[in-house]
């Protein structure tokens, strides 16, 4: 049996996480409730964070950084003027998830910790080298989201830790960026494959969802992506070292690889046109 409790403050949350109970933090609940229904979460203490929303739901800008509270919903982020102005690709990714109803409930911290291989917001955050601020009873630490995933639903997050906020560097002038999602339809569809990129001067960051056990950067391809004589075949050969797509209910490994290759090749072509 799962047991639900309402957390009253941060201290209580950290103490419960640090206890011997098997705990699950519930933010928006849109994934957890499904997991409970499917019995993939059992015999757990479900820690509801509704009453912590005021504290961990915010978006602020300081210099060239935007900090987003982990309990901020997709709708709140997508409708925020700082995000629209400085991180429109994050807005685009968030608006591609679920439906208006789901986006009014689901939180960015939840999307990160749920660790779906398809997590659309994560794909964007990877290209921005976003930092996760993490709190526990006796420690605070910050890690790059690129060091957060260690395989399918495996996280660099201890049992007693809670992500409080995410820090993202705002887009630079002349930075080239976007998020592209391939799904069956516009609403309520999970990515068959996705691509986010951020290119600034000689730094290329490419990330993709649904092609590895967790959302991931295409690190090998990044190194050669600006080479002027790069062919489509070169992209494919390198991409094969970066991804391990699988066949599942949404798509096939072949489709995912082919579509990602085509997306990357069009990006490369558009860069050559701009003399990049």
């Amino acid at each position: 049996m799962n047991r639900f409790i309402r957390i009253e403050n941060t201290d209580q949350l950290l103490k419960k996480l640090n206890s011997s109970y098997k705990c699950k933090i519930m933010a928006g609940g849109t994934d957890i409730l499904i997991n409970i229904k499917n019995k993939t979460i059992i015999d757990s203490l479900i820690l509801d964070t509704s009453l912590l929303t005021d504290k961990y739901s915010f978006i602020k800008k300081k210099d060239n950084l935007i900090e987003i509270g982990s309990l901020t919903t997709f709708s709140e982020i997508a409708e925020n003027n700082l995000i629209k102005e400085h991180l429109p690709q994050l807005k685009k990714a968030l608006l591609s998830i679920g439906s208006p109803q789901i986006r009014n409930m689901a939180t960015v911290g939840g999307n990160i910790v749920n660790a779906s291989p398809a997590a659309d917001s994560v794909v964007v955050l990877l290209t921005k080298d976003a930092k996760l601020n993490i709190l526990s009873v006796n420690n605070t630490r910050t890690i790059n989201i690129n060091n957060f995933y260690k395989g399918y639903k495996k996280l660099n997050l201890n049992k007693n830790e809670f992500i409080t906020s995410i820090e993202v560097e705002i887009n630079k002038e002349m930075e080239i960026f976007d998020f592209i999602k391939i799904g069956n339809r516009e609403t309520l569809s999970i990515s068959k494959v996705s691509l986010a990129y951020s290119i600034y001067k000689n730094t290329v960051r490419l990330a993709s969802g649904s092609v590895n056990p967790n959302p991931s950067r295409l690190l090998n391809l990044e190194k050669i992506f600006l080479d002027s004589n790069l062919t489509k075949k070169d992209i494919l050969t390198t991409l094969e070292n970066d991804i391990e797509p699988i066949d599942d209910i949404r798509s096939t490994a072949f489709y995912r690889k082919t579509v990602l290759l085509n997306l990357l090749y069009s990006l490369k072509e558009s860069l050559s046109k701009e003399d990049y």
């Binding site: 639900f4 409790i5 309402r6 519930m26 609940g29 849109t30 409730l33 499904i34 479900i46 509801d48 509704s50 709708s75 679920g98 439906s99 208006p100 109803q101 789901i102 009014n104 409930m105 309520l188």
Partner: peptide, 24 residues
């Protein structure tokens, strides 16, 4: 959470009554 038949309005926003436990 996919069909919207259980939509209700909570604090002026549309949400899904099938994915909200009483604790919230």
């Amino acid at each position: 959470g996919e069909c919207g038949a259980c939509s209700v309005i909570i604090n002026n926003k549309v949400m899904l009554a099938c994915l909200i436990p009483a604790v919230k």
